[in-house]
Design a protein around this nucleic acid. Structure first.
Lengths: 349, 349
DNA sequence: TGACAGATTTGGAACGTTCCAATTAACTAA
DNA sequence: TTAGTTAATTGGAACGTTCCAAATCTGTCA
């Protein structure tokens, strides 16, 4: 099998032109004659030439590479998987290729992968930071002028662009909706209390309670890992309270699903005996039973927007930090017991 | 901000040594004197030097790069997300970095991303092929001596290593288990009938039925998209049969979850009124309610094994195609109604 | 002292591409 | 014919690294 690399010089020799001409053909330059171009292209196909982007990059070190990095903190969470898919869509169609790494919430690993990506010369980075990431971690990246777009989580003090969803408004709307349905004891379940996102959502929760003249009671705020298992644990604690809540807004959809699981284990019917609202609107939210009422964030869309923002910055040379807060909207389905929908559904059976 | 690239020559000048020495330091060569090494390292830190792997790769074009590609057909399916996480774990700790691309089952896109990865000089590729991938698509890759490991799906006629799970045995065991519980009408639900994986699983289904002296009835085999929504559709059709099945083995866990959803919509309690078994053992399988009985494949583990196999081949120069079929094991939980477990659980409440 | 060995260090050349300036070819206008 | 113009092509040099062979330095031994 062909072991030696076929280079542009081999092509040139075989086609009877100079390497410069071959290079021009590769760049689809209008300078080269049609017949020459055809001949060169034929030889390229024939010899099975593959372009060496590394060498090209080296020469045009002023220009940027066609690689973007994406680093997420938990790829097993489908929210981030969707996010990555969204990013992939737009970078791929812009002719870029994506380095993806998963940090599993480990800041050390995050440092490593970012360093590795730098060595490979990424043109930009989309980052969903691991818990405990500090502004200092991004300093060297910023200094070398590589655009960074932060998603989902913000890093205090870092001068990078960010794209986060409107956490406060999302939870606020959810709580108002529940209050509107007549609930007085509404819990806030799940999430790590030491994160900025948690703080923002909790703020929305408190704000809505105040708006609706409901008492904010601390025992109704129950943190947990932001996962399905965490949701089970949280609802367990909530149901053990002397005065049980009748509804809950959850930190995210994974927690909400866990809460539904936990309710069933107690012979409670989510949506019927207890209202549940999630956050994120992951794909499963609409097909689950009961379909999950949730704050829609559209992770794929977010990925696409992040990628677009990043590409814009890459093309613009150096762009100044831009903070976009993505609007968010409550999608009412069955899990909050917003009756009409459910009754219709039952009537159908 | 520092715009110009800091090169090994800059380091050399600042440290008062030659670029060759700096290079040796970078490679942690034992040839260089301790005090020189320290000085050089200090300067490297001070000037914020970042290694240019592209240039290095170019020079040692005999050696391979430190990039592996991973191409999956559906990253939104958590099975593949987990797989990618598994791959990432081992390649990261081997000092590699992973290019990840999602083809969304589109063979054209798959061709593009593979071409792009080649241009970037990947050392190897892990591929979960899009539906309709042909052996010819991999020909050029193979010809250039880049190791490829196929996962999940096999490609007829391609001489590449593959790592697939024992589809036949998995479903066979599942069906036997159901038959052992006294079920006579067992359905096979979900999956695209034109895929090799489907064929293998169906074979296991038929084999088990024959073993247990049960009739194989065609109307009990119902294909669908291998997704949660597909599962809902499939169980819908199954319940419309004049003679309903009482149990189902599903193409994968996503389908199984959909089947549970569909059952609930009909006021049937999965695990109680109808037995359901999945395939894959995705993370949610154990925390779902009812916990899903499923054929365990451990996607992360599979990713790790695939990555190890690939790295082995990369290091070995060129390895010959190896076909590993991963063993598989039935994990009995609640959704198949294998009583004991469930009764205990109820007693606890 | 001179020769030799081992430990360090070093100047090119090379990797595969792009870019620049310069060359050649083919016409056109005067 | 000749100069001028446009179109097409081309030979280096350069990008940032590694590798090789050769050079330098130190110390030791006869």
């Amino acid at each position: 099998m062909g072991k030696e690399r076929v280079t542009v010089i081999d092509i040139a020799r075989a086609a009877g032109v100079s390497k410069s001409t071959v290079s021009l053909v590769l760049q689809a330059s209008p300078l080269v004659n049609e017949v020459t171009r055809a001949k060169v292209n034929a030889v390229i196909r024939e010899l099975g030439y593959v372009y060496n982007r590394g060498a090209a990059n080296l020469r045009q070190s002023n220009a940027k590479s066609k690689i973007v990095g994406i680093v997420v903190n938990d790829l097993t969470n489908s929210f981030f998987a969707e996010l990555a898919v969204g990013v992939d869509m737009v970078v791929q169609s812009a002719g870029y290729v994506q380095f993806l790494a998963n940090t599993a919430e480990n800041p050390d690993r995050q440092r490593e992968v970012i360093a590795s990506m730098r060595e490979h010369g990424i043109a930009g980075l989309i980052l969903s930071p691991a818990r405990g990431t500090e502004a200092a971690d991004l300093k060297p990246l910023m200094a070398s002028g590589i655009p960074v777009v932060n998603v989902v989580r913000q890093i205090a003090g870092a001068k990078v662009s960010s794209l986060i969803s409107d956490n406060r408004a999302g939870i606020r709307d959810a709580v108002r909706h529940l209050a509107g349905l007549g609930h007085h004891r509404i819990a806030f379940l799940g999430g790590f209390p030491d994160t900025a996102v948690f703080a923002e959502r909790l703020e929305g929760y408190r704000e809505a309670l105040a708006d609706m003249d409901l008492a904010a009671r601390n025992e109704l705020v129950i943190g947990s890992a932001p996962s399905r298992a965490g949701g089970v644990a949280a609802i367990e604690r909530a149901l053990a309270l002397s005065e049980r809540p009748t509804a809950a807004v959850c930190f995210n959809d994974a927690v909400a699903f866990g809460v539904c699981d936990g309710l069933r284990a107690h012979r409670l019917d989510p949506g019927e005996d207890f209202a549940v609202i999630g956050f994120d609107d992951v794909i499963e939210a609409q097909t689950a039973v009961p379909a999950l009422t949730t704050v829609s964030v559209d992770p794929q869309g977010m990925g696409r927007r992040a990628a677009q923002l990043l590409l814009k910055q890459i093309n613009a040379g150096r762009a100044d930090a831009e903070a976009i807060v993505g609007s968010v909207r409550l999608v009412v389905r069955q899990s909050c017991g917003a009756a009409s929908d459910k009754r219709e559904r039952l009537a159908l059976l």
